[in-house]
Simulated scan of single mutants.
Amino acid sequence: MADLSLKFSSSTALDTGSFRLLELPSDLSKAVESALLSIKGDPDEDAVLCTGDKTYTLRSIVLSNSVLVVTPSQEDDGNSSDVVIRDQIHEVLELVSSVPRLHKLDSLLRGREYEEGRDEEEDIEMADMGENRSSQHVRLSYVDARNVLQTSDSELDRYLRDRRVLDLDGELRPIVPSYLTTILELILTNLVSLSLSHDAVPADTLESALEGGHDVRRDVARQVMGWFGILANGMWKMDAQAIVREVGLGILRPHRDDPIAQDAFLARWRTAVGDTFAAHVSLALLAGNYLSSTDSTRDPPLTTLTYLPCSQLPTDPAARFGDLFRARARWRAEEIAPFLADVAVDAKERDRLLLKYTRAVPGEGGVWYSARGR
């Protein structure tokens, strides 16, 4: 083994704290080689590392032994064997897979919902406000969202799709749920009236029918079709189950404080989607968006549904469980699991949260979860 001379760098004071060790899982090595990693976060936020499709929390782990960062001497003439100590490291950064942090998007898009007739109203407002318009509203583009949100591109795209956010004229705008329901019902109606198979719909034909007969913008119709099916080579293959689910949510949404009888709800849902798609109607499609309650004192017993979407619950796990147990004192495992899908990265993380915040008690019908005592 060659002998090396070890010495401190003359710039030690400047180098101290300049280096970090990051422990990479094996599945991230290719992402590093391809330079597809980015670290995101404002100064007041914990940093996260994002790949093209995943988000990781950066966590500091203290090392029991210090690690020296050394480099060859800058004065090395090819014959010298000096090694210079540049810094000492006492911790390593560990990556932990986590859910993307997208809660800021809702506040950034508030007040920019898109609905039928809204464009005409805004044109009038812009004319009245003149140059002051720019001071009243800041548009959020897709690129802006990528820069400010702690999430990977794939997770952002999925979130925008799931939250039904349109990209109109370079601006992100959530579609008003009631208008989305109207568009979907029009799509189902036009498929029947035009004798089109939902597995192979000429996209231009459907767009023309929606625009000409119902004033639905073509770019809006195209994006809605993209959310609820596959667009390729000018043809649209509709995801019937996804559309039926969204129509069901549209019917249930007004019943946040006014429960609806389950049988009446299912009947309205089947009517709304028509005979062709009524077979797809199932409460399982709406898991994580409603509470059911049965009044056994009635004859026959009456089951009612209340709208409770997990997307509008707190993202902090402690607050999430607090709201869930205020809504209901006891939960079965299959009932509470859908309400934790967006705060737990996988089933293992979900079980850890249940262990931390709930108490599992065997009972009639299986295991029941109740709030853990303070």
Results as ranks from 00 to 15, higher is better:
residue 5 S to I: 10
residue 6 L to C: 05
residue 9 S to G: 10
residue 9 S to L: 09
residue 22 L to W: 05
residue 23 E to R: 14
residue 28 L to M: 14
residue 30 K to L: 15
residue 35 A to K: 14
residue 36 L to H: 07
residue 36 L to I: 00
residue 44 D to E: 14
residue 45 E to P: 03
residue 45 E to W: 05
residue 45 E to N: 02
residue 46 D to I: 04
residue 52 G to S: 13
residue 60 S to A: 11
residue 68 L to I: 08
residue 69 V to R: 12
residue 71 T to F: 07
residue 78 G to P: 03
residue 83 V to F: 00
residue 85 I to R: 04
residue 85 I to F: 07
residue 88 Q to H: 15
residue 88 Q to W: 08
residue 92 V to P: 04
residue 94 E to D: 15
residue 101 R to L: 06
residue 105 L to F: 01
residue 106 D to H: 11
residue 111 G to V: 02
residue 113 E to T: 11
residue 122 E to T: 10
residue 125 E to V: 05
residue 125 E to D: 14
residue 131 E to C: 08
residue 131 E to H: 10
residue 133 R to W: 12
residue 133 R to C: 09
residue 142 Y to T: 05
residue 143 V to S: 10
residue 149 L to P: 01
residue 149 L to T: 03
residue 156 L to E: 05
residue 156 L to V: 11
residue 159 Y to S: 08
residue 160 L to F: 01
residue 169 D to R: 14
residue 174 P to C: 06
residue 183 I to Q: 05
residue 191 L to F: 04
residue 191 L to H: 04
residue 197 S to R: 14
residue 205 T to L: 12
residue 205 T to F: 04
residue 206 L to Q: 10
residue 221 A to Y: 04
residue 222 R to H: 12
residue 223 Q to F: 03
residue 225 M to W: 01
residue 234 G to Q: 12
residue 234 G to I: 02
residue 244 V to I: 10
residue 245 R to C: 04
residue 246 E to P: 04
residue 254 P to I: 10
residue 254 P to N: 11
residue 259 P to W: 07
residue 275 D to N: 12
residue 281 V to H: 01
residue 297 T to M: 14
residue 299 D to V: 13
residue 300 P to M: 09
residue 301 P to C: 02
residue 306 T to H: 07
residue 311 S to H: 05
residue 314 P to M: 06
residue 318 A to V: 09
residue 320 R to M: 03
residue 323 D to H: 12
residue 324 L to R: 02
residue 328 R to I: 06
residue 330 R to I: 10
residue 339 F to M: 06
residue 340 L to M: 10
residue 343 V to T: 09
residue 347 A to L: 09
residue 351 D to L: 06
residue 360 A to N: 07
residue 362 P to W: 04
residue 363 G to A: 05
residue 373 G to M: 10
